[in-house]
């Protein structure tokens, strides 16, 4: 049984500072991967990964379960019916990504094939080139700034 009196707001509050294992400056709530919280017989958290093959999913599930275990039984359900889209990033999430050195495409709702251009996160220049659609993790691509001549990572619009 869930501890009597626990509210959804309390659960959200408890989840607030859990961070992404691969980008620790970004919280899971700001990333938008936690869709819904329900408090009933148990606490059900609906979760939607940025990439279906994201290897950090199990770790995030475990973090959520551990964090909420003090309230009672917890179930983290992967919600395949409502996939993650970049619009789910909060304004703060976007800011945290950019402070961590990730470029974000201008138009988060753009179709993938348009290769939405990204401003260089180091100098802000728009003279950038996509070097590789694939980066160190599934959700990142690699760019290069032709002005400050630095490589950078792009957070993918998927």
């Amino acid at each position: 049984m869930v501890r009597p009196g626990v509210t959804e707001a309390e659960v959200w509050e408890a989840l607030k500072d859990l961070t992404d294992p691969e980008i620790p400056t970004l919280t899971l709530v700001d990333l938008g991967v936690i869709r819904e919280v329900e408090v009933g017989e148990k606490i059900v958290v609906r979760f939607t990964p940025t990439f279906l093959g994201c290897p950090a999913v199990d770790r995030m599930k475990q973090d959520i379960e551990e964090r909420l275990s003090r309230f009672g039984p917890v179930e983290v359900v992967i919600d395949y019916a409502h996939p993650w889209t970049p619009e789910r990033l909060s304004e703060r999430g976007k800011l945290m990504l950019s402070l961590a050195g990730f470029a974000l495409p201008d138009d988060l709702g753009a179709e993938v094939e348009e290769e939405a251009p990204a401003a260089c996160p180091h100098c802000g220049s728009r003279a950038t080139t996509l070097i590789n659609r694939f980066g160190p993790t599934a959700c990142r691509a690699l760019g290069y700034c032709n002005d400050c001549r630095q490589p950078f990572e792009i957070f993918k619009v998927v």
């Binding site: 990439f51 279906l52 919600d79 395949y80 019916a81 996939p83 998927v158």
Partner: peptide, 21 residues
């Protein structure tokens, strides 16, 4: 099946990168 439909939408977005590659 809403789960398969939702997953298909996500898979297609991911696969766009594969096709461009």
């Amino acid at each position: 099946d809403p789960e398969l439909a939702g997953a298909a939408e996500k898979i297609r977005r991911e696969e766009k990168y594969h096709l461009r590659h």
